[in-house]
Computed example of a mutant assay.
Amino acid sequence: MYQRIAVTAGLLVSTFTQHAVAVDKTRDPDMVANLVTAATQLDRLSVLCSDKDWLFDFTVQQPNYNFAPGGVINMNAATFPAAKGNGMTLAMLNLGPCSMLPPHYHPRASNYVVAIKGNTTTYMFEENGARLVTEILTPGKATIFPAASMHMMVNNGCDDAQLVSALNADDAGTQNVGNVFTNGFPSELVDAAFGQSMAGAAAAAKMIPVGTGSNWGTAECMKRCGVTPTTS
């Protein structure tokens, strides 16, 4: 048990300086605004007047659809106006060989995740005093991350992994933990809290820019799988 926590703590520390959780930009703010002010569902239907307004493509039509290292594609109020007001986000998670979703949490939603391909290890801490919850998700297996719980997902295999994620909010929000420490709180206070240099300009310079939602994982996995890191 202690060994498992130590290994996971090492993964967490190694990813504090990696920020690749995508930020969804609202694609059609005028349509979303009209849906918000619509008095009835019939009024909403007059805004969503075309069949194409009701179809979302998770696949190659999306800029984040890749497996090198991977990507998160969200169907939510920002990316799909029809989702506004329905209280749900549906996401496709692509994790290429040796990639991960770094430690993060969703402030406004609980998160159900089911694997449809590959082998993904998940880690979750819900709050102070709680134990580490570790699961291995293979096709047909699922887990839950309660609202605001810190979690991460890792593909330590040499094949692609893919999961579907459901969140009970159409604007769930995502906060990457590493970004808080390197580009958020005052660096001297972060360093004092950890008892070592964890923030400041040097760490911020190593921060991976906001990208498609996935990071490359450990050097050991990439060597074992013959993976050469690329920029997605």
Score class of each variant (00 low, 15 high):
L101N: 05
A38R: 01
T26H: 06
W54L: 15
L95R: 00
E127K: 14
R108G: 09
R27K: 15
F58V: 03
Y112I: 12
L137Y: 06
A6F: 10
T143M: 11
T122M: 12
R4S: 15
G96A: 12
V72S: 06
N34C: 01
M150G: 05
Q18T: 09
V114M: 15
F58R: 06
W54M: 14
K84I: 00
N86W: 03
Y105T: 02
A148H: 05
V21Q: 08
A77L: 12
D43Q: 12
A83P: 02
A82G: 12
M124I: 09
P107Q: 06
A22K: 08
L42A: 15
V72K: 06
A39P: 08
Y112W: 12
M88Q: 07
H104G: 09
R131A: 11
L55R: 10
Q61C: 03
M88T: 11
F16N: 00
A38Q: 06
F56R: 03
L12W: 10
T8N: 10
M124F: 03
N64G: 03
S99M: 10
A68I: 01
A20Q: 11
L132Y: 07
C49D: 12
C98S: 11
L48M: 15
Y105K: 05
D43V: 06
G129V: 10
V36R: 08
G10H: 04
T8A: 14
C98H: 04
A148K: 04
Y123D: 07
G129H: 08
N66S: 09
C49K: 07
